[in-house]
Structures are given as C-alpha cells and as structure tokens.
Design a protein around this nucleic acid. Structure first.
Lengths: 227, 227
DNA sequence: TCAAAGGTTTAGTATATACTAAATTATTCT
DNA sequence: AGAATAATTTAGTATATACTAAACCTTTGA
C-alpha cells in the first residue's frame, strides 16, 4: 500500500508540510503561506514552491494568494504522520525511559524512518493507546481521530474548575517546567484569579496555589466537565 | 559531540558510503569504486563524485584510479553506524517481535534517524549485547570491535566440525531458509561431504543430515574450536 | 612493448529543496 | 476609492545527489 493514490513517492519534507498544514488548519480551514513558513522555520518563498509541488501531486489544494488546504489524500498522509509521531513518543516514554519533554525531537526524526509495521508493533506493545504523553489524541489506523473541544486555560473564567488535557507544545523547557509545576494532563485546576492584558493567573491545584503566566496558560488545553 | 572533527555535517548518503567502505575493506584495505558501486547499487560515476566529496571532508583517502580507504574520522563514523545498525536489529528482535530475516531493511532506515541517546538506551535495555541476531559483533561506544577470524562453511574441509557464528547477508529469503534449516549462529555442524566446483555440501546437524548449496555455505561464517 | 579491454573519472544533465531579491496581488486605512 | 502596507508568488541562485555519455588511466596479454 503506497502513501497516496498518485504514484509519486513523498519525501520527508513533504510529510512535514502536510503534517504542519493539518496542525495549523485543525483539519479543515485554509492555511496561509506565512503561517506555514513560521511553523516550519522556512521562508514564505520556499513554502510557496513546495506547496505548488504538493498541489501537483494532488495532496493539497492551493488558491494562490488565498491559502492551502489538504485534499483527502493529503489528510490521510498527515494523519498517518501524526499517528506515527504520537505513538513513537508514547513508546519512548513507556518503554525506553524518556520523559515527556525529551521525546519530541527524537519522534520528529523517527516518524520519517519507521515502517507501518514497526509503528503497529509499537502500538500493540503499548496496548493501542488513544492519547500520547502530552494528552494529544492518536489517530487510529484508518485515520479516525477523536478530537474534543478543549479550552486553553488562559480562556477559563475565574472561579471555574477544569481538567488539564493537553500540553500544546513540543518545547522541552516549557514541558519540563509544566511538569515540575504539576501542570500535566489529568490534573484538575481551579482558576482563582486571572489578571487582564495577558497577565498571570492564580490557580488552585488540589489545595496548593500556583501562579502561571499567560503564555503557558494558553498552551494548556482543558476540558470543563468529566469529558 | 559532532559526528566528526571537521564542522561539515554528514548526510545519510555519506553515512552509507562510509559503512559500505568499512564492510568491503574489513577495516583497512583500499576499496574499488566499482565494488562500492555494486554494494550500494549505484553507478561507478556517482560513487566517484561522492568519494571526492567525502575526501574533501577528511573522511576517506582517495588515490584516483587506485581506491578509497577510511581515515580515522571516517572509520569512527562507520563503526558508529555499524553499532547503530546492529543494536537496532537486536532491539527489534528482542523487544518488538521481529525475526532475524525481517530486521535489516528497518534498521537500514532507522540507523540514520536515531540519536546517540536512543541507541544507548536500547543497548542498556538489551544488556549491552556484543553480538546481533545474525552473530555479527557490535562495536562498542568508543569504536572497539572484536572481530574473530571466521571461516566460510564452504571452506571447511570434509570431516571437520565447526560452529556457525554469523550469517553474512541481509537477504530475508536466504535468512528465512537458513533458520528453517536450523543453520543459525551457535549451531555446531560437521561437514560430511563436499562436492567440488561450487557443488553442494552434506552436513551433520546434531545427528540430522542436511544438504546445502555452495552459495549459502559461503555466507555461513564459522569458528573451528570453542572460540 | 604496445594495443585492447576494463575500470575510473570528468563533463554535462536532472531532481529536490532551500535561499534572496524582485514582482505581484490583497488588504487596510484615510 | 485610492494609496500605503502587508502578504504572496516568481525568478534566479546554490547545494546535494544521482544519472548517462565521453574521456581517461591501468592492466593484461599477445
């Protein structure tokens, strides 16, 4: 089974573009060239060129000056990469002693090198998990993905209690800090106070008080009830 | 710690060349362009070009029309790749249910993507093995490698008893057949009869008789005593 | 010893991907 | 609405790696 319908083989670069488009578009919305360029740390001009090639391969639809979106083929590949990435992260944490802040870069390279067979063996070894160590949902083999509506902690109103579900970054430093502050998926948090203008929040974590800046709070995606 | 002294980063291609040179030269002898081309399934012209670039990076020494050999830097990288490859194979067999005939291709891709840290974690999980599933020695972290003098089974004289130590191929079909015939590292074998002109050999495997063609016998590297 | 054969290198081409600088289109603000 | 600003694309360049075809050494054998 090839990666996509057209015969063209896809390069690691192409895989990264598709994955980035998926992440930025949350599956559907069109994505801007500049947004992609920022995310991939490339120039907009380079992105323009690559997008044109992906479009010729039928993996994205591109309206010049308007944006890119994935075709069904493109989305399938993006979800496959996401599955790989998240299963690899899960495996490294579960079986090789990695911590959640150190797995991202390793997975970023491995996801282009592993075979489908290896990914599935890792999935089996893990017991087919549905979430990775950061709380992100793992797409299943046929591209299904459960995506809950999560609220950034920074948007939660004072007095409300939510449960942290995901940490939306791959940055090791931030992840390490979050873990040390006890702000990991599964943790219930009550917003005691929130200062305006991107100001810090005062939180209640099982009795203990904690102050978190706006930037970090925006990375913590939460659910309101027992979702 | 970078891969080699000069600042130049090495590409996966370059890593493959160095590994191939090491394998073909058994560490020291100069290697021909054509030999390399055959091994890597490339044209001699392509090899010529790449060898020139590797030589500029100080990883190989090249006397035009005479051959290539590794510099100390080049050898270090080659051994690092060999360590990676063999540890990955060992890990896949030991922890993820792979069999010895199916690990080669997977390792061939992964060896370029894993970090040193991951390799060492796999080594620890395996208990720092010294041989991989095919019986090949695994170089240690500082590039030490125990290499015994092994005899191809095809060179063993009639009446002699040897122990199979290594299966010198990555070909899945051949490996599968060898395993099914009981011809795996560790097995003692007595040569009952050997026909001339690349003819088949008759073997005694713990009482059972077996016929093996010359090509396969040449792949089975053996030790004479209890080496 | 010298010519033929074979192995090796060079020259020129192609593909993939990134870049900078310039041209182009879209948006925003007055 | 039209000009200034911002975003996007195109044009042209560079690097890495592979290829084919042609030129070039080396070795072999008469």
């Amino acid at each position: 089974m090839t990666a996509h319908s057209s015969g063209e083989p896809l390069t690691p670069s192409g895989e990264d573009y598709l994955k980035a488009i998926y992440r930025l578009s949350s599956g559907e919305d069109p994505v801007s060239t500049t947004g992609l360029a920022l995310r991939l740390a490339l120039t907009p001009a380079s992105v323009s060129g690559m997008v044109k090639r992906l479009s010729e391969q039928g993996l994205v639809e591109h309206s010049p000056y308007r944006g890119v979106r994935l075709t069904p083929d493109g989305r399938r590949i993006a979800l496959r990469m996401l599955r790989r990435h998240r299963l690899i992260e899960s495996y490294l944490v579960g079986f090789l002693g990695y911590t959640w802040d150190t797995v991202h870069d390793e997975a970023e390279r491995l996801e282009h090198a592993v075979s489908d067979g290896l990914v599935e063996r890792m999935a089996v070894a893990l017991g087919n998990p549905r979430f990775d160590p950061h709380g992100d949902p793992i797409p299943d083999v046929d591209g299904g993905i459960v995506d809950f509506i999560h609220v950034p902690l920074s948007d939660v109103r004072t007095g409300e209690t939510v449960t942290i579900r995901r940490a939306d970054t791959g940055d090791a430093g931030r992840l390490r800090y979050l873990a040390s502050a006890g702000l990991v998926p599964g943790t219930p948090v009550k917003v005691v106070d929130a200062q305006p203008f991107q100001g810090p929040m005062k939180l209640d974590l099982a009795g203990a008080e904690r102050i978190v800046g706006h930037e970090l709070a925006a990375l913590l995606l939460c659910s309101r009830d027992g979702t």
